[in-house]
Write a protein that binds this DNA or RNA. Sequence first.
DNA 1: CTATAACACTTGACAGGACAACTATTGATA
DNA 2: TATCAATAGTTGTCCTGTCAAGTGTTATAG
Lengths: 153, 153
Amino acid sequence: MHSRRQDAVVSILRTANYLGRFYSPVFDQHGITSQQYNVLRILRGAGLGGIPTLDIAERMIEQAPGITRLLDRLERKKLVRRERPSENRRQVLCYITKPGLDLLRELDTPVKNQDNQALHRLDESEIEELIRLLELARGEQPSTKHAPAASYQ
Amino acid sequence: MHSRRQDAVVSILRTANYLGRFYSPVFDQHGITSQQYNVLRILRGAGLGGIPTLDIAERMIEQAPGITRLLDRLERKKLVRRERPSENRRQVLCYITKPGLDLLRELDTPVKNQDNQALHRLDESEIEELIRLLELARGEQPSTKHAPAASYQ
DNA sequence: CTATAACACTTGACAGGACAACTATTGATA
DNA sequence: TATCAATAGTTGTCCTGTCAAGTGTTATAG
């Protein structure tokens, strides 16, 4: 009836929830959400060349419609700029603005603080083991060392 | 700059996301969502006495407003019944209906199947270790054996 | 016994994720 | 070159989650 495997599933979901709440005060204080922060980080990473809308969606593991509207909100806050280049009028290139970069810089330290405090009960080897088990859980090949993610999600 | 602790956080979030997508087809096929399923399970667990709205919210680790509206939708589908008892007209007791119980019974097998397939790459000792590490991650005292959760979340 | 606090929600407004359907471009094919 | 398919987004709708503010009900204190 009741399996440990199911307990593990529940535990993963609860922990994700817990972590969301752990980080959210940092973003709240600056008037953005964690998802908006992630998009801004992706845009900062993309640099001056900008990045098409759907490429952002891909890096976020999210569906396109959400990204369009999330960008709408960031644009309203002047943190992001979008333009449809005349060479290829199908896609929409997205750029982070100066105020966007400023906001990210303000957030760098507090976010890093949260990163360091998160999971503080786990030591280094436990962190590695957790990463390995979660990769297995997602059906991925466990890797000894990971390429850096675009952002914290 | 970039820490393994942060990788672990990202990994937890991604895995939760992955699991959500893993289970959702089962619920989709029966016209409910995973959250609605969770509430129905809680109501089934509560039995004939019913359970107040906020008690459901508590077990779901969710805010009250979401539960009120979720119950509205379940009531529209006739899967749930609510009443304000005359002894204490402040609270609203929620009950699962016959159709609600029938739906849960239909879902029992497919959900159990998903439970068994989820995390199939992990063996028993890895499941135990994962549970332990996640409890630590949430800052809880690791427990050798857990009380069964009300539902999969 | 009446004002006030505490309780148990409910409502409104907004961000986010998901799906389906639609629009506008561009590329490919006949 | 006219047509059709593929690409890249956008719009509409729905469910969920959160916060703030409001309603009705019961308990408490003066």
